[in-house]
C-alpha cells in the first residue's frame, strides 16, 4: 500500500514567502549558519528590517540564533531550525510547482 503523493502546493508557506524572509531562508539554508552582519550585508537590509524578519521566523519556529563573542564584541549567528529547513524546502517546491515543470531555467 503506497501513500498518496503529496501536492507540492501544500508546501506554500506565507510566513516564508515575504520576499526578504524567503531570501533570509535561502541564505541560511545554503550557509548552515550565518552571522547577522553578513546576512544584513548580503541581502542589503537594515539591521531593524532584518531583526524584524528574523523575529517573525523565530516566532514561527523556523529560525534560531546563537550569540558568540568575536573581537571582544558579541555577534549573533542565525540558522534555520529543522522545521524551518523543511518549511523552506517545501515552499521552494511549491514555487516550482506554480512555475510549472517545463521551465528550463529553474
Amino acid at each position: 500500500m503506497s501513500a498518496e503523493p503529496r501536492d507540492p502546493l501544500e508546501g506554500f508557506d506565507t510566513t516564508i514567502h515575504a520576499p526578504n524572509r524567503l531570501r533570509i531562508c535561502a541564505l541560511l539554508d545554503t550557509a548552515g549558519e550565518a552571522e547577522f552582519g553578513l546576512v544584513q550585508k548580503q541581502l542589503d537590509l537594515s539591521a531593524s528590517a532584518l531583526s524584524k524578519h528574523v523575529t517573525a521566523l523565530m516566532d514561527a519556529g523556523y529560525a534560531g540564533q546563537r550569540k558568540a563573542v568575536r573581537d571582544t564584541r558579541q555577534r549573533v549567528w542565525l540558522h534555520l531550525t529543522r522545521r524551518g529547513q523543511d518549511a523552506y524546502r517545501g515552499h521552494v517546491a511549491a514555487l516550482r510547482a506554480i512555475v510549472g515543470p517545463s521551465d528550463p531555467a529553474l
Binding site: 514567502h17 524567503l22 541564505l27 506554480i98 512555475v99 510549472g100 531555467a105 529553474l106
Partner: peptide, 22 residues
Amino acid sequence: RPTPEQARSALVDTERIQASAQ
C-alpha cells in the same frame, strides 16, 4: 499564492542568493 511569473522571479532571486552563500 503568487502568479507563475512572481514565483519564477522569487526562485531566480533565491538561486542568486544561494550561489552567493555557496
